[in-house]
């Protein structure tokens, strides 16, 4: 009898407890599904960004190589794809405002396309009002609750803010950061800027005053190696994708480490050079798993 119990304990330890702990130290965060190539989507090329549209319950994914945006429903079933009448050249990151208009970053053109499907209009955002220091290379974007658009300008280490009418409003300089790579805004309007090379997150109020900086580079579980993207859950949890650790690290608003999940791998639930993260109000986490050419969904 005792031998049986011992065997059961051993089995649980080696085959269930240890792998589960290693893969998902994040309590309660489980891999839900993955969006991969199939007969409907066809080949997936280099994946750029994802955006979850809460108003329409749609997940949008940019397929940079194939010059298209793919739409999926809330069950991650393919709905449709579009290329803005052939206007997309190399779409990377995208957001959609409450009016249903898209903003798509086009790095090869050096602009952000404003796409109004109803009006059938596609035009680049006007950067002429932006004080220039270096040539603008627009990167990742986000929207706040009032539809203000925030754009990462890597070459000038700043965040450009446009009002809902697409007029340049102001800029936030990320002075002490190094390698500005992503921006997100929380429900209070605070701006979170991710510094990849410096391995930190700078938090600003809506006027651009630095409130706090947290995170550092290192080998500990709460430290960054090469953080590339961040997302903020409405409840205040900040998720950061670390491309070289192949993990997602989570922090609270005070910058205190909470948990991490996933690890390097090819199978479902693992990540291989992830490049972007997005979280919806329901708490679903969408990760562009670039090395595996898929979108991994966690909950």
């Amino acid at each position: 009898m005792s031998r049986k119990i011992n065997f059961v304990i051993l089995f649980l330890t080696f085959f269930l407890i240890i792998p589960a702990t290693a893969l998902c130290a994040g309590k309660g965060i489980k891999h839900l599904t993955s969006i991969t190539r199939d007969t409907e989507t066809g080949r997936l090329g280099l994946l750029g960004g994802v955006f979850f549209d809460e108003n329409r319950n749609r997940l949008y994914v940019t397929d940079t190589t194939n010059k298209r945006i793919l739409a999926f429903d809330v069950d991650m079933k393919f709905v449709s794809e579009f290329n803005a009448g052939g206007a997309l050249e190399a779409p990377t990151f995208l957001v959609r405002n409450s009016k249903g208009q898209f903003f798509v970053a086009e790095p090869t053109k050096g602009n952000i396309l404003f796409i109004d499907i109803r009006q059938k209009s596609v035009k680049p955002i006007d950067f002429s009002g932006v004080p220039k220091a270096n040539i603008i290379y627009p990167g990742k974007m986000t929207l706040d609750s009032s539809d203000n658009l925030y754009i990462v300008d890597k070459a000038n280490q700043r965040i450009l803010i446009f009002d809902p009418d697409l007029r340049f409003d102001r800029q936030v300089l990320v002075k002490d950061g190094k390698g500005l790579s992503d921006v997100k805004v929380d429900s209070s309007g605070n701006i979170y800027a991710l510094n990849t090379i410096g391995g930190s997150i700078s938090v600003f109020d809506s006027r651009g005053n630095l409130l706090q900086t947290f995170g550092k580079k290192g080998k500990e579980k709460q430290e960054f190696d090469f953080p590339v993207s961040l997302a903020i859950h409405p409840k205040g949890v900040i998720y950061v994708v670390d491309q070289h650790k192949h993990k997602v690290l989570a922090f609270n608003k005070k910058g205190e480490f909470l948990l991490y999940f996933s690890e390097l791998g090819w199978r479902e639930g693992r990540l291989h050079y992830p490049s972007f993260i997005c979280v919806n109000k329901a708490g679903r986490i969408f990760i562009v798993d670039r090395g595996n050419s898929r979108i991994s969904v966690f909950e």
Partner: peptide, 17 residues
């Protein structure tokens, strides 16, 4: 060189990068 940086993945940085 300017065109080399008009790519999807780049080493664009701050200032005279």
């Amino acid at each position: 060189t300017k065109e080399d940086f008009r790519k999807v993945n780049t080493h664009v940085g701050q200032g005279v990068f």
